[in-house]
């Protein structure tokens, strides 16, 4: 009796191995192609071992294309947005956790619902709002900065400027981050703050000395998810940026791919690998927080 069920269990285990191996190969195969193609001196569209290993494609990304610029733009906008998200969601999440006011529940429902709105559907009105804001700030800045107008607008413009992209990217990551921070602060006992209040600490002191140190793990999780999502975003830079100096990695990759007559797969593979690596690193850290975000947030 025991023999049969053991044999059967063994068969199921074997089946489990086969299934896992097949699914894993399906999942990893495109990455293998990309990694090999990025160092293959004779790139082909199909998966093969490199004829000889070369780093020319990587050199080309930085020497012939604007790889450095794209990478720097991506890093700057995404890190700025992530930083803003951490600060704003840290404060807001604390307020949402501690408040007992009437607005708390509607606000929490609202941020869950904001997460389900498709960003393509919001894009047109968003673009018009940003355009108005851009004209407004342009009117103010033009007399002030004179001949540097174009440069200043690339920094502070809402359309085709860093500031606009950063703010919109950050806002998009806020709902999940607020949720993560709210849930996180729910788990932090109030004793510490109450002790600080009894000691006569002001709100600012309480935030700096007590809450920020306590909140660091939560902020790390919120920041990681904000970074990953903003780093992978393609739609916003596609719509909001047009100057070549402002292009980010996803757009650089996409545009390079559209040059139909002269697609250089080695170059593209190297560029895509460069773009992929920070995402994978962030994801490997964020992985253990993944389940928690499901319970309250929406899949990102």
């Amino acid at each position: 009796m025991a023999g049969i069920s053991e044999k059967r269990s063994g068969a199921y285990t074997l089946l489990a191995y086969v299934t896992l191996i097949v699914i894993s190969i399906f999942c990893v195969l495109p990455f293998v192609w990309m990694a090999l193609a990025s160092i293959d001196s004779n790139v082909q569209l199909f998966l093969k071992w490199p004829d000889s290993v070369t780093f020319d494609h990587y050199t080309k990304v930085f020497a012939e294309e604007n790889g450095v610029r794209w990478f720097a733009n991506s890093l700057f906008t995404v890190l700025s947005a992530t930083f803003i998200v951490m600060v704003v969601a840290g404060l807001g999440g604390y307020a949402l956790s501690r408040s007992k006011a009437w607005w708390k529940q509607p606000f929490l429902y609202a941020i869950l619902l904001i997460r389900v709105l498709p960003s393509t559907a919001l894009l047109v009105p968003l673009y018009k709002i940003l355009l108005t804001a851009n004209n407004g700030i342009g009117t103010v800045l033009r007399p002030l900065v004179g001949e540097h107008y174009r440069f200043v607008m690339q920094l502070f413009g809402f359309i085709d400027g860093y500031l606009g992209l950063i703010i919109v990217l950050a806002t998009g990551q806020l709902p999940l981050a607020l949720w993560i921070m709210k849930v996180f602060f729910d788990g932090v006992p109030k004793d510490y703050e109450e002790a600080a209040i009894l000691d006569g600490a002001t709100l600012v002191q309480r935030i700096r000395r007590v809450l920020i140190p306590l909140a660091l793990p939560g902020l790390a999780a919120a920041g990681l998810f904000a970074f990953m999502s903003a780093w992978g975003d393609f739609l916003l830079p596609l719509i909001l940026l047009s100057s070549p100096e402002l292009q980010t990695l996803p757009i650089g990759l996409f545009r390079a791919f559209l040059r139909v007559n002269e697609i250089d797969y080695g170059l593209l593979a190297a560029l895509a690998t460069i773009y992929l690596i920070p995402a994978v690193i962030a994801f490997s850290f964020a992985r253990r927080f993944l389940v928690q975000t499901f319970s309250g947030g929406v899949k990102g």
Binding site: C27, V28, L29, P30, F31, W33, M34, A37, L45, M228, W231, G232, F234, P250, L253, F254, F257, Y265, L268, A269, A272, Y275, L276, A279, V280, A282, F283, S284
Partner: peptide
Amino acid sequence: LPNAAPEVVAGFMWISM
């Protein structure tokens, strides 16, 4: 792993496949 890949990278890899 595929979950970590940005959308454009995913698109590019699969076009190649």
